[in-house]
Amino acid sequence: MTDVYVVGTDMIKFGRFPDRTVGSLGGEAALLALDDAGLTIKDMQALYCGNNILANRMVGQQVLREIGQTGIPVVNCANACATGATAFREGWMAIKAGMYDLVLCVGVEQMGKGLLGSAEVEDGLSPEGVLGSITTPSVFAHVGMEHSRKYGTTFEQFAKVSVKNHHHSTLNPKAMYRIETPLEQVMAAEMISYPNTKLMCSVNVDGAAAAVLASESAAKRLGLMSRAVRVRASALVSDPFSERNLTTPDFNAATRLAAAEAFRQAGLGAEDLDLVELHDCFATAEIVHYENLGLCADGEAGRLIDSGETELGGRIPVNVSGGLLSKGHPLGATGIANIYELSTHLRGEAGARQVEGARIGLSHVVGLGTACAVHVLEKV
């Protein structure tokens, strides 16, 4: 089977665009990625589009109406926060299987403002309202408190995640919020669901990102290998079965399963990574994912954030983009935006936030439900 390469990728600056359509946002990101590759929509053999909120609106076709309808097949994906990563993986698999040589993957979402969560329950008693357990702030409050119970992780350690990621965002011109938030400010902000204050919650924004994938033969034929980034692994999983109370789900299992599969495919381990873009939907999530992805041993995540090793310039920089906490989290776009960030570093084109000498990067997204995607990218 052929290797698959990212030969073009880009994203729009995340923000709020109430006067635009989801198709126009996705179309803008698609054109940016195509321009980055030096190709056009006429070169693409298929489109894979991720959008979660308008899953039944055929958003991929709306994107093509903006940039050119060439008759290619369109696949629309919805997979919670892993939506964009799922679209990317579908494109990767199609090339890996020999179906196509060039495909376009787009992730796009218009989020609006307000709370996410509170899933509908068709039958029986919903735990929401009885335990207050299904909204996302409640889920990730539980995640944090369980980590504190087991390992003594402190409120201050959780808050340091936001300090770090907000600082990183000041170096990223495509982040929604580019502001420093000192530790005292993060800890004193409005409490949403302990231990996450308002400044420890991800930002609901509109956004779009895109990537052009190519087979090795196409990348060489088109002279695109000099800036190509190899997709060394692509893993997508759902929750394995466990006997547990579903009102307090095991948030760690899917990520550990996906990471193990990605490392198996890549023939690498966490010790080989140079940077990571992980799913920091809340500050507590980043802490537990340090351990889930093998960046440190179980119980050592608090020490890891204290050490500064996950900061730019540290041993394993995490969320140098600013992460979901300040770059923003448009569900359908996040997975491909992570791919863009990694690719930019592996190409040596990240400017002030460049991770020097980066050769291997890992992206991670996980959606409650659960869908978890992990990709490993490699500098050619």
Rank of each mutant, 00 (worst) to 15 (best):
E190V: 10
A258V: 12
R232Y: 11
M200C: 14
G207Q: 05
Y177K: 11
E216Q: 10
K174D: 14
M225K: 11
M145Q: 14
R227Y: 05
S162Y: 01
T248L: 13
L199P: 00
D239L: 10
E243W: 08
T170W: 00
A260V: 08
P173N: 09
R221H: 12
R221P: 01
S242G: 08
H168G: 03
A159L: 01
A208Y: 11
P240S: 13
L183N: 01
Q157H: 03
V212R: 07
E190C: 03
F241G: 09
H168C: 05
M225A: 08
T181S: 13
G144E: 01
E216F: 03
T247G: 15
A214D: 12
M191R: 09
E180S: 06
V163E: 15
L183S: 06
E261I: 06
E216H: 07
K174L: 09
T247R: 12
M176T: 09
C201P: 05
H166C: 01
M191L: 13
E190K: 15
V205I: 12
L268V: 05
T255D: 13
V237I: 07
T248C: 03
A210R: 07
A235Y: 08
A211E: 14
A262W: 08
S193A: 13
E184G: 06
P173V: 00
G267Q: 10
A260Q: 15
A214Y: 07
M225P: 09
A253N: 14
A208W: 13
H167L: 11
L213V: 10
K160I: 00
S234G: 13
M200T: 02
E216M: 01
P182Q: 12
T154K: 08
Y194Q: 01
G223C: 05
F158Q: 00
K220T: 13
S202K: 04
E156H: 00
F241V: 07
Q265W: 03
S242D: 09
S217N: 12
Q185W: 00
N196G: 11
E156P: 01
Y194G: 05
T181G: 01
T181F: 02
A208L: 10
D239I: 02
V161P: 06
S238I: 06
L257Q: 15
V229M: 11
S234Y: 05
T181K: 14
V143G: 01
R264S: 15
F241K: 07
L246E: 14
K198H: 06
R227I: 02
T153G: 00
S193G: 00
L199K: 08
T181I: 05
A219V: 00
T197C: 07
I179W: 03
N245S: 13
E216N: 03
E180I: 04
